[in-house]
Write a protein that binds this DNA or RNA. Structure first.
Length: 308
DNA sequence: AAGGGTTTCAACCGCTCATAA
DNA sequence: ATTATGAGCGGTTGAAACCCT
């Protein structure tokens, strides 16, 4: 089919931002017809607007239509967009049908200005939704810590969890680089002091994930870490106060990214979360609420990691 | 306060799809 | 089967708002 002649090529047709008067004219015209537009092409003439039909349709569907919901996207909406985008791609109109009151244009803009950047910062390719290779990832350790700190400040993660995230990242860095463990031990000591002084309780589930992460062979599958976290959370019906599932998944994603960047290059292909959950090795026996009272537990893990 | 850089989002453009003739 | 046309979609643009120095 040949391309249709665009009405915007009409001489003298106004373009650019709509005035209040034009909005009023368009709304009154459509309401007068009981919401039945008829045909957009002929609408400007019958409504008395010096606009092309296309412009009228866009203004109505994206802004003036009374069904449109205004305001910031909720956490649930954001999660739904990401989920739908993973399966549908840039099918904004289709995605919009799943979010009541949101337009395709609004979702597209929100994706490009917020979600896309957020995923990139987390080291996730916004097109494929897969982990970016370390050399392409915008993610790096200090930024991960900033994210964790931001999450903690918003109440999504307590300080104990934040410290755990830092510790895990330090540990993985040490494992990956084979550097000496001096800094890690020093950090562990510092963390110990902080935890002892604050009395923070470390979310048990987060610890379990971290412990799994440290087990031999796990690094080959770390790209599934975020999914695994969600599956485990679901299975254990975790309801830790102050840790929403989304925040937990995000924080798990952070840890996943770091872990994946140190994974062997011949890492096994990814498995669906459900399949992977069945393959999980038995959990490591955790110390008492991981109080970090005893450095020996961590030292043993470190020693094990050097033997890998 | 100013001005330069960045971000946001309404609106446009060009294309494809669906359908009537 | 072919063609013409309107509707709708997704990528892109640019003005305004916002932020930073």
């Amino acid at each position: 089919m040949g391309r249709s002649p665009c009405c915007s090529h009409d001489a003298g047709v106004k373009k650019g931002p709509w005035t209040e008067e034009e909005d009023k004219t368009l709304v009154e015209h459509i309401q007068k017809r009981g919401g039945n537009v008829g045909g957009w092409r002929g609408l400007p003439k019958t409504a008395g607007l010096n606009r092309c039909g296309k412009s009228c349709r866009l203004r109505w569907t994206n802004y003036l239509c009374p069904d449109i919901k205004r305001g910031n996207f909720t956490e649930d909406e954001e999660r739904l967009i990401i989920t739908l985008h993973a399966s549908l791609g840039n099918k904004w109109a289709t995605i919009a049908t799943h979010l009541e009151g949101r337009t395709d244009n609004e979702i597209k803009n929100y994706w490009n200005t917020h979600i896309r950047k957020k995923l990139l910062r987390m080291g996730v390719d916004p097109v494929t939704h897969q982990q970016l290779p370390p050399n392409q990832s915008h993610h790096h350790l200090p930024e991960a810590l900033l994210w964790a700190a931001a999450a903690a400040s918003l109440g999504g993660m307590d300080t104990g969890a934040l410290m755990q995230a830092q510790l895990l990242q330090q540990l993985l860095r040490t494992i990956g680089s084979n550097n000496d463990a001096t800094n890690l031990v020093a950090n562990l000591a510092a963390a110990n002091a902080v935890l002892n002084s604050s009395g923070s309780m470390v979310p048990n589930l987060l610890l379990q994930d971290q412990m799994n992460c440290l087990q031999p062979g796990y690094l080959c599958n770390t790209s599934n870490f975020a999914e695994q976290h969600v599956v485990q959370q679901h299975l254990t019906n975790d309801t830790s106060p102050g840790t929403s599932s989304f925040a937990a998944a995000e924080q798990a994603g952070q840890l996943c990214n770091t872990a994946a960047s140190f994974a062997p290059h011949d890492a096994a292909p990814q498995l669906p979360a459900q399949e992977f959950a069945c393959l999980l090795e038995p959990m490591t026996e955790l110390p008492d609420l991981c109080s970090l009272e005893s450095d020996s537990f961590w030292k043993e893990i470190l020693e094990d990691s050097y033997r890998l």
